[in-house]
Nucleic acid binder design. Structure first.
Length: 238
DNA sequence: ACATTAATTATGT
DNA sequence: ACATAATTAATGT
């Protein structure tokens, strides 16, 4: 609810922050310098909104560290998580798809570090910087495909398979290798998973408990690690 | 094959 | 101690 009081502009942005990120990777060092000088950076606590659905798209963002979940609110006021975005990707790029308002709300899933630029710069970025638009459209298309897949899953598959798919996607995009398997790199609740799979947190809880007994996954509070991804793959194909 | 309701327990500040 | 997260059982569609 309360806006984070800690609003610190970082001392100086290092050019190496952007040099390896797809949209900027083809830029000269001095171009990157210029881009950085136009950017403002901000740190977000977990669970706060970076921007909200329907609001005018004044800025677009680059997630430098952390994870963001893209959330939409249904007419009944229920939250639906559309997808998760890992560090190194752009968000709030409404302008790229010809919108002037944000199509969804972006909430931080973990503590996050974010750069942003005024949307008015979008067109000049696209013009001036080689590869900027092609790269962003690539990720945009990728995201679209994922959302579409989830729509298909919702109507065809049963819950156990849907959460299996959701988990697999999560560890693919935001997975971190640990000793027992792959852990989802940000705090995620059963509620979150249920929003991803269009079920209830109770069902998710039961499914997860079942898998835990079979040794497929491991979970403590807000943490899920997948021990046996392949077994989940098999589950989705029943 | 699920959701809903409700009661109970565990966990983090 | 308190709020939030997770489990579990019972009941409903």
């Amino acid at each position: 609810m309360a806006e984070a009081p800690t609003h610190k502009t970082l001392p100086r942005l290092d050019e190496s922050l952007l040099t390896h990120l797809p949209p900027f990777s083809r830029l000269e060092k001095r171009q990157i310098r210029k881009v950085l000088d136009l950017a403002s950076s901000r740190r977000y606590d977990p669970g706060v909104a970076i921007f909200e659905e329907g609001h005018p798209a004044e800025r677009f963002y680059m997630l430098l560290d952390g994870y963001v979940r893209v959330v939409r609110v249904t007419p009944n006021g229920e939250q639906i998580t559309a997808l998760h975005i890992p560090a190194g990707q752009l968000l709030g790029i409404a302008r790229a798809i010809g919108r002037d308002t944000y199509p969804a709300t972006a909430m931080t899933a973990s503590e996050s570090l974010v750069l942003s630029w005024p949307t008015s710069l979008w067109d000049t970025f696209v013009e001036d910087y080689d590869g900027f638009s092609t790269e962003t459209y690539k990720t945009l298309g990728h995201r679209l495909g994922e959302m579409h897949n989830r729509v298909i899953e919702m109507t065809t598959q049963q819950v156990e398979q849907r959460v299996a798919n959701a988990l697999l996607r999560l560890i693919n995009q935001t997975g971190r290798k640990v000793e027992n398997g792959i852990e989802i790199d940000f705090p995620i609740t059963r509620q979150d998973l249920s929003e991803l799979t269009a079920t209830t947190l109770h069902t998710v809880s039961r499914v997860l408990s079942g898998w835990e007994k079979r040794g497929l996954v491991e979970s403590r509070r807000k943490r899920i690690t997948v021990r046996d991804p392949h077994a989940l793959m098999v589950l989705t194909q029943s």
